[in-house]
Each structure stands twice: as C-alpha cells, then as structure tokens.
Write a protein that binds this DNA or RNA. Sequence first.
DNA 1: ACGATCCATAACTTTATGTAATGCGAAGGA
DNA 2: TCCTTCGCATTACATAAAGTTATGGATCGT
Lengths: 296, 296
Amino acid sequence: MNFRRRIPSLTALMTLEAVLRHRSFTAAAIELGVTQAAVSRQIAALEEEMGLPMFVRKHRAIEPTAECLILGTTLAQSFANIADTLDAVRFSQQDVVTIGATVAFSSFWLLPRLAEFRRENSGVQIRVVSQDARIDLDAGQVDIAIRFGIPPFNDGTVIASRGDVITLVCSPDYLQRRKAGPLSADDELIETDVEDRSWLSWSQWIAGLDPPFPGKPSLRFNHYTETIFAARAGQGVALGWGVLVQTFLDDGTLVALDQRRISAEGRYNVVIPLKSRRTVAIDRACSWLIASLHDG
Amino acid sequence: MNFRRRIPSLTALMTLEAVLRHRSFTAAAIELGVTQAAVSRQIAALEEEMGLPMFVRKHRAIEPTAECLILGTTLAQSFANIADTLDAVRFSQQDVVTIGATVAFSSFWLLPRLAEFRRENSGVQIRVVSQDARIDLDAGQVDIAIRFGIPPFNDGTVIASRGDVITLVCSPDYLQRRKAGPLSADDELIETDVEDRSWLSWSQWIAGLDPPFPGKPSLRFNHYTETIFAARAGQGVALGWGVLVQTFLDDGTLVALDQRRISAEGRYNVVIPLKSRRTVAIDRACSWLIASLHDG
DNA sequence: ACGATCCATAACTTTATGTAATGCGAAGGA
DNA sequence: TCCTTCGCATTACATAAAGTTATGGATCGT
C-alpha cells in the first residue's frame, strides 16, 4: 500500500490527463498555467519512467496510445473524485458554526439571544453543544466555546470575557411567604453540584455572613438550570448569577431576596480553539458574541 | 475540469493518506522514505491551505478529524485505482513481443524458426504482424521490425543487418523439362510486383546478361510467397533470394537453374523503434533475432 | 527528577518543476 | 521549389517545492 513507490510523479500524471483531454500539449499547457515546454518535459519524463509511449507524435498533432487512453480514464475519474471530496469537505461546514457552552449559559443566555443573531445573519446556522463537562477545544468539533472559569486557557484563545455578580434570588411568592429579614436557617436553600472551583456554593456564601448560621441546602441539583427552575417554582432560595438570571429578574419570575452581592471569581469567556478553521460565518458569530456578552 | 486549480499539493495528499492509515507521522515517514519533519511540514501546509485541521495533535498520538476521515477514504481509493491501472498498463504486455516483417520474410524465415525461440523462451509470446507495406514504427504497435531496405532508417535503430544473394531457382521437374543451358526466352519467368526500389526485378537481372534477350515474365504476383509457390509448383523460374528460399533449396523442392549470383542492394534489418518500451521479453527476442539472422 | 517518544519548527540543502530561447520537421500555400 | 506556420523537443538556467538536520516542547512512565 505504499503508493509513493507505486505511483510516478503525480504532477506528470495530472499533466497527462490534461494533454489527453485536450489532445494537445500546447492547449494543456494553457489550462495548467505552464509553458508548452514544461508539458513536453513532464510527458517525456513519464514515458521514460514507465518505459511506455503515451503519445504518438505526429506533425503538429499527437495521438494517444492505447495505454494512455486506459490510464487517462482512470486518472480523470480519480482526480475528479479527489477534487469533489475536497470541495465537499471544504464547503460543507462553511455556514455552520458550532458553539459550545454550559447547559445553564446555553439555556439562560445564548438560546434566548440566538433569534437576534439569526435575524442579522440569515445564512448562518448555529449548532449549540451544551455540556457542563469541559469542552475539548482540540477535538475540532467546536468552533467557539463559552467557558466559565479563570482565563487564560491553554487550549484556546480568549476573545471576550465577562465577570458576574451573584445575588440571592427566589420567586415573588416565596419572598412573600418567608419571614421578612435577611437569610436565615428557616430558608430553603437550593444548591447546584458543580465541580468547578470557581463556581460559588452556598457554603461560601454563608461563610461570608455575619453572624453565620448552620444553613444547609435542602434541595440539590446537578444542573444550574434545575436549580433556577426550582427557585422560580417557589421552592426556595438560589444563588443567582446575574448574567444568567437577568431575564427572570426582568420578567418578574425571580426577585432579589436582599441587597448582598458577591463578585464571582470566575468569568464567562468566549474562547476559540488554537488551531481553528476560519470561515466568514465563524467570524460573524465571534463578533456577535463579543458584542452581546458586553452589552447584556 | 482544471484539476490543477482545484487540488492542492498531491504530495501532501499522498502524505495525508499514509499518515491516516498509520495514525502516526513517524510511521508514515518511514513508509514514505522521508523524515518525520517532512511529514509534519506537508500536513501543516495542507491544513493551512485548506483552512481545516486534519489531525488533532495529542501526546505522542494524533486523531484524525471527521473531514480527514472522509478525505482519506477517497484518497486511498483513488490512489489505489491509479496504482492498479498503472500496474495493469505496465505489465499487461510484458510477455508479448510484436514482431513486424514482410509477408515473405515472415513466412519463409521467421515462422519456420519460431519454434526454436519458443523452446528457449517458454514464457514469451510472439505476435507477428506481416505486411509488405512499410511498418510504422512510431505507432507503438510493433516492438521489433524486420525490414528490407538500405539502412539507416529515420524511425528506428538498426540492431542487426544482413545482406542477401539472389540466384535463379525453379523446381527440379521444371529443370528437367526445359532445354539445358542458360536462361533463355523459352523460359517461363515469374515476377513479383514490389514497390521497393532495392528489390531486384527480372528486368534488372536480364540487363546484366550477355547477350540479353527480350524476356518478359509470364506470371506476376504481388507477394513473393506466391512467386515461390508457383516456382515450386513447376510453373517457371523465379529470382531466388537466398535467405528466403534456403529452406526450399535444402529440402529439394527448389533447385538452382544456373551458377549466376547477384548480391542484393538492400538488406534485411532488425529495427527497433526510436522510443520503444523495454521489457525482458523484447530484449530476449532481439538477442535471438540478431543471432538467428547471422547464423542462418 | 529523568528518560523516552512523537510532533513542531527553523535554517539550510536538494530535488522537481518551470521558463526562455532555440531547433526541427511536416504541411500548406504561393 | 521555396517560404511560412505551427506544434512538439531540447538545453541552460532559475526557483519553488520538498526534504534534512538539529533542536524544542510536552506528556507519560519509572
């Protein structure tokens, strides 16, 4: 299967195919963008290497040999297959942009805003990969990732970054049902199990209270989306990441429990892979994400 | 259909196919007979040109991208098709040797001797092209030609040459029926119509007699084989080209009419085309022809 | 911590490819 | 017959493409 050993100069073979199609060295040279002399040399070298004539030289004309006709048919087909596959591979993903993000970011921030991007870029298709596990940027499956954490990252380039502020949020109904005043042990705390160290947990929030109380979450979820769903359903108090819950604060399905705010250690980062393909669509998506992340 | 424009470096594509098959730059380099660095450069250049990663670099390992897998499949198939066709074209005629000769030479000299060649070269197949019209050596259809004429020839290389001596021959029966003595006007002369100027005709033979006589052929044929057939059948006297009629002189079906001999102007030449394919079989046929022409 | 291994890169070398100039030869036309 | 045309062939030279050597970086395993 050592093709390098079995196949002579592919440049010469490509030249042969063109000469055969044109039945002329000079016409083939024009198509190939080289001189007639270059074509003459390639064919002569090929005939020499193969020990077989490919063309009978006549006066101001050439005639292909039988072998040349056989070989030329295979070459034309093979080069066409290669060219077609190259085209398919190069352009099939031209207008698709794959964006990876956490489930929460995808659900609360990205998806509600995609309609706006689509309006401005009608030919571009966005494919969203949501997963709370860290996205492998080296795999080439994702064009852009929105990753929570502390930059920089060794597998990608950060092109936009935004911090967040965390508040306590609950439903208006829950706020009305609870005793007035600061958070206390009577409150139902809804916790999210997140492995990321830069993510804020209830223990960290309580540790900063004065005086602290032995509060313990009564509900635990492994996705922040579920935590917020439960809070909006009036089942307790959740840590509200401003960027993620802003839409619910805006629509009134969540309210702030008190005035305390903690700045998050981690940030939301728009990251592109170190070795990323570059298409117009990807560039547009990047520009839009940068603007949107900073605006709202 | 300008493949040169549509396809990047075929060297890089051939490298890609090998890397994909081996799943290793280093192993591919060994097969290709180049260094790892050369492979690294070819893949990097290809990825750069296509704007698409082909391999995900991991520690001491690589992973092909989806595009690479698609492209690699087409490349493997295409290169295999090209290689197989090249093999077929190169080797299909490996053991067939095409020898061209005049009808007379083929019938009287070559065919009777072919059994000997076959005994010594059991794997080689000889194809004989008999025609009195001049054989076109540029057409690539004939590997070796035995051509009568005066060398050199501008369409081939003479690798052996032999002259001939012409005598008068007739059948033993005819010799007995005729009046004893030299050729005379009472003899039936059998003529061959040959366009070649180096061929001897009756008028040339009679012109050299002293005294000449107004002899005129009573039988004419367009193939020398027919002339000899008629002579052996007792229908007259023919000009006997020594090399061609020796077997009949040997077996007694022809006898010499008198002692006169004329050396022929033309010669029998073993000619190979200027741009000939070279196979073991052709080389063997050439060697055999050279030896046989000189021996007998 | 050290060594092994495999891909990446830079400076340099070699090979393959292409060019400009010229030659050759067979048709065709005057 | 002579001259012109045209298309492939060849040579000396230039350069682009491909390959090499040396070295670096990173991740395993011991």
